[in-house]
Every structure is written in structure tokens, then in C-alpha cells.
Design a protein around this nucleic acid. Structure first.
Lengths: 207, 207, 207, 207
DNA sequence: GTGTAAGCGAGACGGTACGTCATGTCTTGTA
DNA sequence: TACAAGACATGACGTACCGTCTCGCTTACAC
């Protein structure tokens, strides 16, 4: 872990102003022209920066966009970073609906939609980026989800032997897929229906 | 519907030999160099064809790859095309496992893995391609799935009010996501677990 | 002369309408877009003719333009073709000035300027075309000039041993060069000065 | 004169090696395949240079060829550039014959014939190139010619009122035309005959 | 304090691929 | 069988970016 950045340049001399300008430019341009037409040259021009400054610090345009997201989320978290957790009122179904409804609102925000989709697509093609995503962005969130589900297990709301990864996929997967593939509108009603169906299963339950 | 191709060139004069060479080249090259490095120039060179012949008939390299798949599946279907259906032994769970296990085997086939993933990625970025995919490739398969689930409803294995689209997502989504995002190995055991979890739901069922 | 068109198709079946449409289109397009941007495709489209019809009968776009000129001059000559001759009033200097002034007027006609220049340029690059030009267009005119000069020789206005080809070059060359290379305006005064200078020579003549 | 190159890129960063490679390649290729088949792609390939490097510094292939000539002549001039002058022995006729014979020898050199003709043809079609040619290549030479003729005027060998531009055309025009249009062989005898005819005029002179 | 060695904006460089255009040949269907 | 139409393989066009490189400039750190 300590020697991982052998070839990277000296980070202490890095220009914070350039870094922020690049991330901002990348984020905005992705929203304006789409990820496919996003270019390093374009980012550099918009940011008023030499191309080499980008190549010096990032291996690909996907990595730049990734860092742009990272900066965004870190900026939003504020001071009390560690304390984030999913709501836990004791009612798993209600809590999941709350969370999914919030996700729906976020995904419907036009400012984030295009760059977020671009990042998700890029991850499919770049394993290194996927690893970074899994570790830095998706990982922490997934841990929160697991914690909430584990609590539900202890409360008896979920069975002991449940595959939590699969459970998460059942609850959050359909929403993400519908968003990523634009298969239909993202609504609170849809969020609710997912939660109910996932919890109860497809099979009829005895009354 | 009849006049939709006003500006397209005369299809009757089209060279079938060139068309097949292009589709074959596109499919093979995607497997060899990956979709990102696939180029129209490369396809044309490999196919022994002028670039213009590709631009004349396809709007994008994604469209070429799409047609390559279409040709593949149509070639495979052979004569008895209409009779395709999902297995129906009366045991929904067993049948779904059979189908998902077959899908697992297909997705593990290295020949199709890379091009198929490329096509799926491209669809995320090209709405026109997505529409074609939904209509020509995914649509028919989805109809088979719905039919099977409807049969199960009539047999009382599934409730009347079930959202079939969501149900399909619950069953097939996790497998597709794991494959697309390379989140883990695709095994028969995983296929079975998905089916069981989706059918029973996350919540404990009374014994 | 008899075997020169070995590979050409049967001329008797040729469509006169297509031929004229092609020549007209070529001439007009040269005036409109310039010779450099003139294309066989463009001529065919403007003439409402298949490309093959042009390739069947002409070896190059220069040849088409050449024929367009030929058609033009032949159309203008009318019936009494053989009777053309340069004016001969017995005063060589006056006659040459008359002829050169007429040439000046022709070269200043904007309709012919661009196509004529194009043809002259093309001739520099295509020996076959140059030969055709020398034989069909320039040759007859040069014969007229020589005849007039020979008459002057017999009248004692020019010395017996004069190189007539060089003499023609002295008289007509400067005008043609000034036009071809756009070195200056073509005026009657310039025409007169050429004739005087060529006849008298650069050296002072005794009074 | 100071602000004429507003949009041109920074000349100080220019690669001299690339520039020379391009000019050499252009000159050689013109000799090998002819100007018509000369292509920017071909020059770039032969020079081991990206196409953009050519487009960055030259507006057309004609301009490249022009610079190739410029480099050639500038290389040949050596140190004492300003001192060049046409011979002046006091005998105008002899001096002009000397100069024209030298020109004949130069035009007969097969290394320069094709590229030089190509440049001359291109000038007919490109006014910008023509202006550059007039200023940089033809202009200085023309000044030398005028100077020699002016000296002859002062010595009484030529009349005061003579149009020097026209006189130059009379002497050098026929040779240039015969070369450019390949109308016949370029010989010393022909050079001599031109000078004699131009000086004495077509009309007979009293003995 | 003053090198000296980074990072920086700038942009030229050798390349690859783009999407368009025209070439000259070949094929199809009409008259 | 000549023709209009137009698909075809070929190849150059001029553009956009790629990722690398070199320029001066500025901005620390080390001596």
C-alpha cells in the first residue's frame, strides 16, 4: 500500500487550482456534450490548462471523471463524514422505501444524470476504474446497506442465512437498471413496488 | 411504416457478400481487440471492403455490431423459429433454474462474452440502438419469459396482480448485472440461488 | 488515322442528346466552380447522365472540356468554314493590330475566360490533350496566321528568311502570357504596343 | 508588413528537421510521380511526418512545392547573395545570348524540369501562389533583367521610351513558352535566334 | 539568497481514425 | 446494347484527438 505510487510525480507541488479547474471542466463538459465526445483536449482547453497536466495526474478521461465525482461527494459530506448511516426505524420495509425514494430523486436530477451514467458506462469497460469505483464510491455505500440489512437480520426481519449481496442486488438492482438503460420513468411508486416485491418474493404468501 | 426509409439507398442492389464480410469482420475484431479499439477502418480492411460501403448501410459501429448479432441469432434459429418457448414442466422454480443455468453457460462462452458485453455497453449510450435492441433482440426473448410467467399465474404459482416486468427483472437482472459488471463468477449455484431468493423473497416465510 | 479508335464503342448507337448535355454541363460547371473542382460526378449529375456514359466516350475530364470547346467553335463557324482568313489590307501592322484587338475582346469575355484558361492549363499536363489541341483548335488558327505572314513576306514587308513560328510567338505570345498568368489588364493599347515592338524590334531603328 | 502572419502558429517552435524532410520529399515525389499524383499523404509518409504538420504550415501542396524551390535557390545562392547580376560586357546581344543559353541548360536539366513545370502550372490556378512567386522567385530575377536593359538604354543600345516589361517578355517569353508547352527542343541555336529576332524586330532593317 | 528541479500553460510533433468525396469499374433494369 | 442509376473497392481529403515531447516561466525546497 505504501509503494503503490512509484512512478507518480511529487504530489506536494501539485497545483490545487489546476486540479479543481480540470475536475470542474470535465464534469461540466460531460453534461454538455456527453461522455463520448468528451476529450482530454477539450477538458484542458476549458480548464485553461496544459494537456500534460492532465496526463501527469490521471491515466484516462474516465479517471478524471471519476475524481470529479469523488470531489463532488466529498464536498457534499461535510464534516461528520463517519456518521452516515441508512435510516433504521425498526421497520425495514419503510426504511428501504425511504432510501430508494431518495435515490429516485437523485437520479432524476438532470445535473447528475448524464455524468453519472457516463461514469457507470465507463466502469464497464475499464477494470481499473471499476476497482476504484468499487472501493471508493460504491463500497462505502454498500457497507451501509449491509449494515442495515444485518440489523434487520438481528431483529428477525430477515433470515440468518440470507446472501446479503444478492439481497442488495434484489432491492437496488432493478432501480439502477431501469435508470441506466432508460427503461422507464423513475417514480416513488416504482421504488415502493420494488421493495415490496423483493421482500415478499414473487410467490404468493399465505395470508 | 412503409415509407420510413426514404433516404436509404436501394437495398435490392446491395452486395450480400460485402454485408456478410463486414458483419463477420466486426464480430471477430470485437473479440480480438475489444470494442473500444474497434474501428470502421479496421472492419473495412479486414472485410476487404471500402469504408463507404459501411457508412452507406450503417450509421455507427455499434449498429454494425448489432447486425452482426442479429445475423448470428437468425442463423442459429433455423427453420422452426416460431416454436421457441421456455420450458414448462409445471414446476416454475425448476424451469427458471434450467433457463438461468443455460444463460450462465452462454455467458461463460468466451467467443460471445466480449462482443456481447460491447453491444450491451453501446446500447447504454445510443438510444436508437437501444430501441432496435429492445425490439429485435431482447423483445422476443422477453415475450417468452412473460408467457412462461403468465402460465405460472394461471397455474396459481404466481399471484394475479404481479408486475411481470419487475418479476423478470428480479430473476434475470442479478445474473446480467453480475456478468456485465464482472462482479463475480457465473455459476449454476448462483443461478439457483437467484431463483430461490426471487421466488421466496427476502423476508422469512412461515414454515 | 483509320485505326485510332480501336477500343471505342460503336459510335453509331451513341446518344446525341446525352453527348450535348454532357458538353454543356462541363462547360457551365467549369465557369461556375472552376476547373479544379470540376468532377466527372458533377458533370454526370448536372447532365442527368450516368457516369459510365462519360467514361465510355472520354478518357478524362480534360477531354470532355476540350470537346465542349470544339462543339462551341464548330457551332460558331457555321457553313462557310473554309473561307476563314486573317484580314489582309496590305498593311501588316494595321492588320495585326486588328486581329490582336479582336483577341483581346474575346479574352475579356467572362463567359469564356475561366473555361479557356482551364483548358490551356490542362494542356500543359496532358500531352495527348496537347496534341489534340494543336491539331484541332490551335493548328487551323496558326495556319491562318502563317498564311498572312507569308503574304507579307511576298509583299516585301517581312524578310524571306524569317522564322514564322518564332514570329508568331513574338506577336501573339505576350498577349497570351499576360492573359494566362493574369499579369495585367488586356487592352487595345497593349495589343498595339506588342505589334509595334515586335515588328520594329527592341533596338532603335535609324530614322 | 509586421502584422501579416496573425493566425500562423508560433514559428519559433517549428521543427527544422521536419520542415526540410517535407520539402525534400515534396520535391522528389514531384519528380517521381508528377505533380498531379502528388498528395499530402504521400509527402507526409515519405517525410516520416504527420499530415497535420504539413497542414499546420502550408495551405496547399502547391505552397509546399513552392517552398521547396525557395529552399533550393536560397541554398544555391550562398553567401554573396546581393551581388548577383546579369553579365554586362557592353554588348547587349552577346550578353542576352549568354543568359538565354544558360537558361536553356537549366531547363534541360531533368532534375528540375518536372517540378519546375509543376510549379509553373500551379501558379496559373492559385493567385496567392502566383503572388508569392512574383515576389519571391520571379521578382528578383526580373529586377536583374530590367537593370541590364536600363544599362543598355543608357549606353544607347536601346531607345529611351522602350517598355521594359514588354521587352523582357519578347526576349524570355518565347523560350519559356516553348519549354512550358513542350513545343520543341531547347537549344542554344534557338536561344540565339530569339535574341536576334527580338532585337531586330520582324521587319527588315536597312543594311 | 540562490540555484535547481519540479509543476505549469502552451503547443508542435508523429500518429490513428474519422466521415466525406471522387475515382473508375461493375451490375441491374429499362427502352 | 446504349443508357440512367447507383453500389462497389480504392484512396486522398482535411479535421479532431491521441499521448509524447520540448519550450520558457513560476514556484518551492535545499544548500
Amino acid at each position: 500500500m505504501t509503494t503503490e505510487r512509484r512512478k507518480s510525480p511529487d504530489t506536494t507541488r501539485r497545483s490545487e487550482a489546476s486540479r479543481r479547474a480540470i475536475l470542474t471542466a470535465a464534469f461540466e463538459l460531460t453534461g454538455e456534450v456527453g461522455y463520448a465526445k468528451l476529450s482530454i483536449e477539450g477538458i484542458a482547453a476549458r480548464a485553461g490548462v496544459g494537456k500534460q497536466t492532465i496526463y501527469r495526474w490521471w491515466p484516462s478521461k474516465g479517471a478524471v471523471l471519476f475524481d470529479a465525482f469523488l470531489a463532488l461527494t466529498e464536498g457534499a459530506e461535510g464534516a461528520g463524514e463517519q456518521e452516515a448511516a441508512l435510516p433504521d426505524t425498526g421497520d425495514l420495509e419503510a426504511d428501504l422505501k425511504t432510501v430508494l425514494r431518495a435515490t429516485v430523486d437523485e437520479l432524476n436530477d438532470p445535473r447528475y444524470d448524464e455524468p453519472m451514467r457516463a461514469l457507470n458506462v465507463e466502469i464497464l469497460q475499464d477494470p481499473a476504474l471499476a476497482a476504484a469505483y468499487a472501493e471508493r464510491l460504491d463500497g462505502p455505500m454498500k457497507e451501509l446497506k449491509k449494515t442495515r440489512l444485518r440489523n434487520a437480520q438481528q431483529a428477525g426481519e430477515l433470515p440468518e442465512g440470507l446472501d446479503l449481496d444478492l439481497a442488495i442486488e434484489m432491492v437496488w438492482g432493478p432501480l439502477r437498471t431501469r435508470w441506466l438503460e432508460r427503461r422507464g420513468p423513475l417514480t416513488h411508486a416504482y421504488a415502493d413496488r420494488i421493495v415490496e416485491t423483493a421482500l415478499n418474493g414473487l410467490r404468493p404468501r399465505p395470508a
